[in-house]
Simulated assay, not measured.
Amino acid sequence: MSFLDLVKQRYSCRSYQEKSVEQEKLDYVMECVRFAPSAVNKQPWMFRVVKNDAEKENLRECYSRDWFNTAPMYIICSILHDEEWVRKDGKHHGDIDIAIAVEHLCLAATEQGLATCWVCNFDAEKCKQLFTFAENEEPAVLIPIGYAADEAKEKKRKDMDQICK
């Protein structure tokens, strides 16, 4: 499959099968994440795989949507702020670095026949209360991951001349 075909295949899944994700596929996805680039190669991130029922229920308190509850597992993607690179003008790159790594995660999952969805609109403070995070660690993105029970909808994208000069 070409990279363009992979990118077109990836979508925000909002319904998952009850089927568990095989450990080999999860390991592959996380190995792809491990090789994601970051500013000055700081790799200012931490990824927590949430599989057990008690932790899944806790995480579901942080984002209360019926579709989110259908995922068989989740990955909490966090920024380690004391490890992120800061440009001379004060621009922190942790958000950029975590975004690159998370998209590696989503594309690798798609390649493995899995589905994902970026969830950024969650209660990060509640997440910090329910899970143990380092003082410098900020949960930034939740990724439900599993086998899709829905189908991708047509992607609406701007025309090339609207995004490229």
Rank of each mutant, 00 (worst) to 15 (best):
M1K: 11
S2R: 11
S2M: 11
S2T: 15
F3G: 05
L4A: 12
L4K: 11
L4Y: 13
L4H: 09
V7D: 03
K8F: 12
K8P: 04
Q9P: 04
R10S: 08
Y11S: 05
Y11L: 07
S12Q: 06
S12V: 03
C13S: 10
R14M: 08
Y16D: 03
K19A: 10
S20M: 02
Q23S: 13
E24Q: 12
K25C: 06
Y28R: 05
Y28M: 09
V29E: 09
E31W: 01
V33E: 03
V33W: 00
R34G: 06
R34H: 11
F35R: 11
F35H: 14
P37V: 07
A39E: 05
K42E: 07
W45P: 13
M46I: 01
M46A: 14
F47M: 12
V49A: 11
V49K: 06
V50E: 11
N52C: 08
N52W: 08
K56D: 11
K56R: 15
K56Y: 10
K56C: 12
C62Q: 07
Y63I: 03
S64H: 11
R65K: 15
R65L: 11
W67R: 03
W67M: 06
M73A: 14
I76F: 00
C77M: 07
S78E: 02
I79P: 10
L80T: 06
L80K: 14
H81T: 04
D82P: 01
D82Q: 07
E83L: 09
E83V: 00
E83Y: 05
V86D: 00
K88D: 09
D89F: 03
K91D: 03
K91A: 08
H92V: 10
H93C: 08
G94H: 00
I96A: 04
D97H: 07
A99E: 01
I100F: 13
A101K: 09
A101T: 03
V102H: 00
E103W: 02
E103P: 00
H104T: 03
L105G: 02
L105W: 00
C106R: 14
L107F: 08
L107R: 01
A108L: 10
T110G: 03
E111C: 08
L114A: 09
C117T: 12
W118D: 01
N121R: 13
D123P: 11
A124I: 00
A124W: 01
E125I: 08
E125Q: 15
E125H: 14
C127A: 15
C127S: 10
K128W: 02
Q129M: 11
F131D: 13
T132R: 14
T132M: 13
T132K: 15
A134V: 03
E137K: 01
E138T: 13
A140L: 02
A140H: 05
L142A: 06
L142S: 03
A149T: 05
D150C: 13
D150R: 10
D150P: 05
E151T: 14
A152S: 15
E154M: 07
E154L: 10
K155S: 04
K156S: 12
K156F: 14
R157E: 06
Q162H: 14
I163S: 07
